[in-house]
Design a protein around this nucleic acid. Sequence first.
DNA 1: GTTACTAGTAACGTGCTGGTAACTAGTTTC
DNA 2: GAAACTAGTTACCAGCACGTTACTAGTAAC
Lengths: 121, 121
Amino acid sequence: MKPNQLLASSCAMTRTMGILGGKWKPLIIWGIGQRRIRFGQLAAHMPLISRKVLAEQLKELEEAGLILREAFNEVPPRVDYSLTENGLRLLPILESLRDWTKSCEAAGTPASGPCLVEKQA
Amino acid sequence: MKPNQLLASSCAMTRTMGILGGKWKPLIIWGIGQRRIRFGQLAAHMPLISRKVLAEQLKELEEAGLILREAFNEVPPRVDYSLTENGLRLLPILESLRDWTKSCEAAGTPASGPCLVEKQA
DNA sequence: GTTACTAGTAACGTGCTGGTAACTAGTTTC
DNA sequence: GAAACTAGTTACCAGCACGTTACTAGTAAC
């Protein structure tokens, strides 16, 4: 099953999974949020994702038009990432998804593992 | 990166990805929708997912408490799947996700590939 | 001259993910 | 007595997703 196959589907939900499929992309979008953030900051923020995978996913998200990449010709190099309008419109949906998880767990056990992405207050 | 690691995170968004991560689970939930549906029907409905993977994902979703599995002691065997309350509460969120995709594509190219899951009218 | 800094990329290796085919059971149909 | 039906499970195998390590460039600090 190639992701391209998903994107080519006539079913909108299937295409959605082609865009956001995998466990990383929603987390990365959520991690960027409304900020402009540099690659290194983002990587430090999400220690469970390797830098290589992060770079790959960022590139795919940029191609999908969800994030904006601004590279500055400086030394040392500097690149800022931020969400495009389409990306920003995804945030409230992700938020309701997170709330759904919380409500499911309402009577469950609290988690204690490392935080992969936590929204800055 | 083990999915268990995601589930153990203290970050709710990370745990969400632990539950729904991968490209299949949201599609399966969407495919079941508000119906009671048999395994064979569901499999016929989503031709791009192999039966083996479908069975595995269904089991995981059942363990996560999102779907209900009812097996009847008949011959030939019969098993009905349906969403639990938690699963049902996910449907409107998935719907807004699908709408988000559609609005992103508003000016884009129409897709023509096979439908993996399409909501029955 | 060495080290550090950033934002990656390339090479390499491993293990999980997913696909295919074969098999199960008990009853019905031919 | 053979075949078909359902809902899987098992064995086996290919591929890719992911991780680790090393490397780049140009400048600044030591």
